[in-house]
Design a protein around this nucleic acid. Sequence first.
RNA 1: GGUCCCAUCGUCUAGUGGCCUAGGACACCGGGCUUUCAUCCCGGCAACACGGGUUCGACUCCCGUUGGGAUCACCA
Length: 467
Amino acid sequence: MVRTRIAPSPTGFAHIGTIYQVLFDYAYAKKNKGAFILRLEDTDRARFVEGAEEVVYDALDWFGLTEDESPRKPGKFGPYRQSERLELYKKYAQELVTKGHAYYCICTKERLDEVRTRQQKEGTPPKYDKHCLTIQEEVKEAVSKGASHVIRLNVPSGQDIVCHDEIRGDIVFSSDILDDQVLMKSDGFPTYHLAVVVDDHLMKISHVVRGEEWIPSMPKHVLLYQFFGWEIPHFYHTALLRNPDKSKLAKRHGHTSVSWYKEQGFLPEAILNFLAHMGWSHPEEKEVFSLDEFISVLELRDMRAAGPIFDLAKLEWMNGEYIRLMSAELLADKLFDFYEGKYKRDFISKTIPLIQQRIKTLKEYDDYCSTLAEPPVGNLDLSSSFSLVSGATIEALSSLENWKADEIGATMQAVAEKAGVKNSDYFMDMRKAILGKKITPPLNESLELIGQPGTVSRLKNSEETTQ
RNA sequence: GGUCCCAUCGUCUAGUGGCCUAGGACACCGGGCUUUCAUCCCGGCAACACGGGUUCGACUCCCGUUGGGAUCACCA
């Protein structure tokens, strides 16, 4: 049984990099008829944020990557919030202490800082000096009397720890560089390292897909698995998404928030398709493919280890592809929802044929259609020849009987010809006079949509403002 | 700095020793279509970081150099 998981800490922020992990977790689980689990790593009370869980759920739902088990969808392996599993961690930490693989520590922050600065001066790796281990009986007595304490991992010296990554192969670490990591904090909460190992084991996680920033702490996890005598899941450390300057995709450089992509009018399907190209490629080198197809051809071990740069230009292209491939009906629905009532559903439907080949994001709809819905305001930047043809155009259009795009076009063309004005100049002026922009949807169809009275009144207004 | 990871066009990538004069996509630059902008079609520019090996033969294997990245908390 394949069971994958995503284990975000609820910070009130949905990171696009998390979705990247989820995509592979979800797809691999589905491919193997397994389960995709969402576990909340809320062990850091200092970072608790109200409503943060919903942010995670909303993001998963928006992308259609809904989990099989989670706090909101309890399965057999709950609870799915680490804060509700405290007794479990305590029990397993005790087990390690009993076996001698962990020990109590009552060192103060001051002493820890002192040790660290001394090591920095000496140029030795900064790690705990096992002071409390040497006086463990004393420490235990203090703990039993209620002294504030943590539990540390007792890292053996002189051992090679082999960490197997399915993408890179074996990575060997010397245990001598490892710190006696805190397992249980003084507030009774576990640290990530203990919790992740205990939970992945108890929740029967078979494949772990996580970012490569976790590689340095993997030996600690392997050590824990060995101490507990548990089977180690398959690890896939994926390359980190990068900013154009190659640094880890982070808030201060690039756009990391799912909400940003949503606001920019990107479609979840397009984002997923784009993300699927990061570190992985379709076996037939296809560019555009559905989530279902991705699921059927995905092979996790084909992932590349090099860190890809997140290229917005390609995402935009991909998004445009999805918009063009979409049914008119669906696109209209998406636009209507995106603009939350700013545009009438009926108006949007009528504009679809005019803009579907033009917009790359839902947000660009505004650029084309805002002045189609409402007359433009401000400087129209018309050429001097406009005044020569405006009167005749108004007259011709006012008397047009069949207000259809091709008729409108023919009528205007006749005016231009009669006045001896170049088509391109004439129509550009009309475009600017009626729609207020140089870049617009096709003019004739736009005018049909605006209607005869609307068009004529817009022309009259433009005529006045230019005089 | 220590440890670890990584290295093909500007970007995403194909390539698992001969099929490579290195393929595709985005971007970019031309051209066609066209009353704007797009779509669409045609064409172009552009890469195996460097140095040693191994081999009859290296983009592909090994070592080193350089470069980039990650990580070194009672955060995850």
